[in-house]
Amino acid sequence: MLEIDNLSAFYGNSRALQNVTLEVADAGFLSVLGRNGVGKTALLRAIVGLMDRTEGSIRLDGEEIAATPTHDRVRHGIGYVPQGRGILPQFTVRENLKLGTFARRDPGHAGVLEDKVFDLFPVLKELLNRRGGNLSGGQQQQLAIARAMLTDPKIVLLDEPTEGIQPNIVEQIEDVIMRLNDEHGITVILVEQDVNFARRASRSFVIIEKGHVAASGPIDTLTDDLVHRHMAV
C-alpha cells in the first residue's frame, strides 16, 4: 500500500506538485491523468526520490520513505519506467537488464524472474548483445519494463509507456502492463494520455491540474465530463 500525504515537490525553486494526497492499495492500479506539464511526471519522480526537494509524506507499506535517498528507496520494491524510457545507450541489452537486478530485495529467485521477463518479451532474448541506444523506441520500452520487472517490485511506476510507439507494439505493452497487475499482483501507477486504456486497465484514477489533484476516485467514476474538463486541449 502506497500512501502519499500532502506531498509538494520542486524543480529547483519552482513548485511542480502542491499538497497532493492519494493512496493506492496493494495490487491496485492507479492511472494518473492530465494535460502536458501539470506535474504527472513530477509525481512519479517524487515517489522515486528524483526531485530536487519534496515536502510531505510518502509511505510504502507503512514505512516513511520521503527522506530516504533514491538508491535505498527503490530497494523497498519500487520498479521505475521513466519518461523517455531511461535506457542507457552505451550499455548492451544484457547490461541494461543487469542494472535491474541491483535494486532487488531478495537475490534468491533470479532465474525465475529472468524466465518470466523473457516470457513476457521474447524479442529481448535475440537483442541481448545490442547496444541500448541502437534499439527502436518500441524495443527500448519493452527493455525498460523488463528491467523494472527484474527488480522484483511490489509497485511499478510507468511514465507514458506507449508514447511514440507503433500500434501493434502498443497493444503488446498494454497487455503486459495489465498482466503485471492481474497475474503477478504488482501494484501499478501509470501516467497516461490515453483515457481508453486507463479505463480498461486501472481500478482508480487521479487527474492532476497545475500540480494539484483536480479529481480522483474509482475508475468507474471517471466521467466523460471530467475528461473534457481536465484533459481536452
Binding site: V48, G49, L50, P69, T70, H71, D72, V74, R75, I78, Y80, P82, G86, L88, P89, Q90, F91, L99, G100, F102, A103, R104, R147, T151
Partner: peptide
C-alpha cells in the same frame, strides 16, 4: 558506467552514485 551515463536512472536502480 551506469552512473556516468545517467545518474538519475542509475540511482533509481539502487546504485549509490
Amino acid at each position: 558506467r551506469a552512473v556516468v551515463q545517467d545518474r538519475g536512472v542509475a540511482s533509481s536502480f539502487g546504485i549509490n552514485a
